[in-house]
Design a protein around this nucleic acid. Structure first.
Lengths: 331, 331
DNA sequence: CTGTTAGCGCATTCAC
DNA sequence: GTGAATGCGCTAACAG
C-alpha cells in the first residue's frame, strides 16, 4: 500500500493541493462545504502529512529539540514530563538529546537537532560553548534555558534561583535553632546549580554570623548511595554537627538511611535537609525537610512560553517558578 | 547569515552537488583528493545537512520513534538511557512520545511519529490497537517491542519473561521457608507485565502446594506512597502473613517504610520482596530482596538490534535479557 | 474563497 | 570517478 499524499487527497476531493494544505493547517479562508469534502477525503484515504516535506517547504518543523544533562537523575525525566504535558494537544514532537553534563556534547547534539530546523530548543542552564551560542543565534528558533534563573538568558529562562534556595535553607535551619551546620554534597564541577545552592547556603549562614562547621563532598554524581556513605564520612570526622544540608534529596535520603543503620536519632541528634522535594523523601518514616523545586512545572511553563510566539521578544525573559520550604520532620 | 547548503559546498569545492552528497554519506567511490577538498569546504562553511530534505528525498529519516508508557516510573527513563547509549556515535535521533499506558494515545502518537518516516519504532509490550498494527505493517520500519517476551512480536522483542520472574519470586520465598505469603500490588489493568508476574507468582506457589494467603491492591499507579499505605492495609487485615511479594520495588520500598514506622521487624516478623532492582532498594538499612530487570540493557540491545539491518527478518526475533534474584536482606 | 506556479535541499537514477 | 537531470511531498507567494 502506497501512502497517500496531498495530491491523492486533492484529486479525491476535486480541489487543488493547495486547498487541501490550507484545510490541514487551518490557514486562510475555506468554504465550509470544501473543508467538509477535504476532511472526508483525508479520512477515507487515511492520509498522514509527510512532515519532512512540510519542514523542507516551510523551513521550519514541528520538532522541539530538548537537551537534558542526564536521565539518571529523576529530576530531568520530571522536567521532560512537564514538556510532554505542555506539548500534548499540539502537533509538536520532542526530539531529545542527553549531554551527560558535557558542553561539547551539548554542542554536537545541538548541531544535529538544528539540522531538523526545530521550532524551538530547550536546554538547561546558562553554560554553553561559544559555538553553541553562535548556532542558537543564527538559527531562527526560540530558546528556553531551564532550571536556573541566576543569569541573563538567550531568550527565555524558566526555573528558580538556586542561590536563594541555598539562603532559604540556611535561614530555615538557623530559625529552627541549629548552629553547628554541616554540608554533604556531590561533585558539582558540572552541576552549577548545586554550587549556587552551596553559595547561598554559606551566604545565609554568614548573615546569621555562622559558617559551615564541616563539609564532605562525594567525588561523583549524586545518588542515595553516595549520600549514605558521604554522611558517614562526615559524622566520623566531626561528631559535633547538629544539622546537615545535603546537595539534594537523593543525597539526603541516603544520609537518612545511614542514620537509621547507625542509630543516629533524626532530628534529635542530627537534623537533615535536602533539596528538590522528591516523593521518596516524603515517604521516609520521618518526612524529609527539603525545598520543593517544581520540575514538572518548569517543563510545562517553558513549552507554553515558547509556543506563545514564533519570535523572540526584544528583551530576554525570566520566569521564576519559585520554590517552597517543605518543613518535614527531619529538621 | 544564510545557512549553507549542498550547493554552496559544491561550488566552493568545485565539484557537483552529487559528489558532495556522496562524500557525506560515504557512498560510492571518491578520489581521495576530491574528498579532501569537499571536507575542507564543509568545514569552512560550517555546513550542516538539512535532515528534512534528506528525509524527503530518500523517504526515510534518521529518526527513531520511541513510545514509552510513562516517565514517572523510573524504569522507563532507564530504558531511554539505554536507547540513548545505543544511539550514541550514530546520526540517529530519538523522537519520543509518552502514552500514559493508553493504547489509543499510543496509536495517535504512532501516527505522528510515522509522519516523520522514522527508521525504526521502539515501543513497549505487545498490546496495540488494530490500527496501530496496520500502520506498523504498512510502514517499512523496523519495530522493537520492549520489556516483555511472553508473546509473539511484530519484528523484535527485547526484555524478560515476567511470568518466569513471578515464578522465581515464589520459589525463592518458599525456599527461604516462608509459607504464609501475601501480595501487595497496584492497578495493573494497564500494566500487563505486573499482571504476568502476579500470575507467575501464583503458579510458583501452587507448584509448592501453596497459595496467596492475603492480597491487597492499590487502585492507581505504583509508588512508594502507595506501597506504604497498601502494606499497612494488608497487615491490618491479616497479621499472620510472614512474607509479602510486591508488584515492584517502588511499592516494596514503601512497604519497608511502613515496617520501619510501625516497628515491624524485617524480615524476622515480615519478609519483603520487590521487583526491578532499583538503587533505592539497595540503600535501605537492609537491602531489599528483589529481582534485577536490566532496563538499561533492554534499551541498548533493542537499538543495536534495530540498527543491525534496515529490513525485518522473515521470522520475528525474541531477545531475552534475563533477570537475576538479588537476595538482599529483607527476605 | 480557490487555483497556478515555483521552489525548499537533498538523494537517486542514469549517463559519461 | 564524476556530473546532469529529475522528483520526493509540501508550502508560499501571487493571481484571480
Amino acid at each position: 500500500m502506497q501512502t497517500a499524499t496531498l495530491a491523492h487527497v486533492a484529486r479525491l476531493a476535486a480541489v487543488s493541493e493547495n486547498t487541501v494544505s490550507r484545510v490541514i493547517r487551518n490557514k486562510g479562508p475555506i468554504a465550509e462545504e470544501t473543508r467538509r469534502r477535504v476532511l472526508a477525503a483525508i479520512e477515507q484515504l487515511g492520509y498522514l502529512p509527510n512532515r519532512a516535506a512540510g519542514a523542507l517547504a516551510s523551513s521550519s518543523s514541528l520538532i522541539i529539540g530538548v537537551l537534558l544533562p542526564s536521565l539518571s537523575n529523576i529530576v530531568f525525566p520530571e522536567v521532560l514530563r512537564g514538556i510532554h504535558a505542555g506539548l500534548a494537544d499540539t502537533l509538536y514532537q520532542p526530539m531529545i538529546g542527553v549531554t551527560d553534563y558535557d558542553l561539547d556534547q551539548e554542542q554536537r547534539l545541538l548541531a544535529s537537532l538544528l539540522a531538523w530546523q526545530p521550532a524551538a530548543i530547550i536546554t538547561t542552564g546558562f553554560e554553553h560553548t561559544q559555538a553553541s551560542r553562535r548556532m542558537l543565534a543564527n538559527a531562527r528558533v526560540r530558546v528556553a534555558e531551564l532550571m536556573d534563573i541566576d543569569a541573563r538568558p538567550i531568550d527565555v529562562a524558566v526555573g528558580l534561583s538556586h542561590r536563594s534556595a541555598g539562603v532559604a535553607t540556611a535561614r530555615h535551619l538557623v530559625s529552627r535553632g541549629y548552629r553547628r551546620i554541616g554540608y554533604v554534597g556531590h561533585d558539582w564541577t558540572a552541576d552549577r546549580r548545586a554550587a549556587l545552592r552551596y553559595e547561598g547556603l554559606c551566604q545565609g549562614l554568614q548573615e546569621a554570623g555562622l559558617s559551615l562547621v564541616a563539609e564532605q563532598r562525594f567525588d561523583g554524581p549524586s545518588s542515595t548511595l553516595a549520600g549514605r556513605d558521604t554522611l558517614a564520612r562526615l559524622v566520623e570526622g566531626d561528631a559535633s554537627v547538629d544539622a546537615v544540608a545535603f546537595s539534594n534529596d537523593d543525597m539526603a535520603v541516603g544520609g537518612f538511611m545511614h542514620c537509621l543503620a547507625a542509630g543516629i536519632a533524626v532530628p534529635g541528634r542530627l537534623a537533615l535537609f535536602g533539596f528538590n522535594g522528591l516523593e521518596i523523601g516524603q515517604v521516609l518514616p520521618k518526612p524529609l525537610a527539603t525545598i520543593r523545586s517544581n520540575r514538572f512545572l518548569i517543563g510545562r511553563v517553558a513549552v507554553e512560553k515558547l509556543l506563545e510566539s514564533g519570535e523572540r521578544s526584544a528583551e530576554p525573559q525570566v520566569i521564576d517558578t519559585g520554590f517552597e520550604i517543605v518543613a518535614g520532620a527531619t529538621a
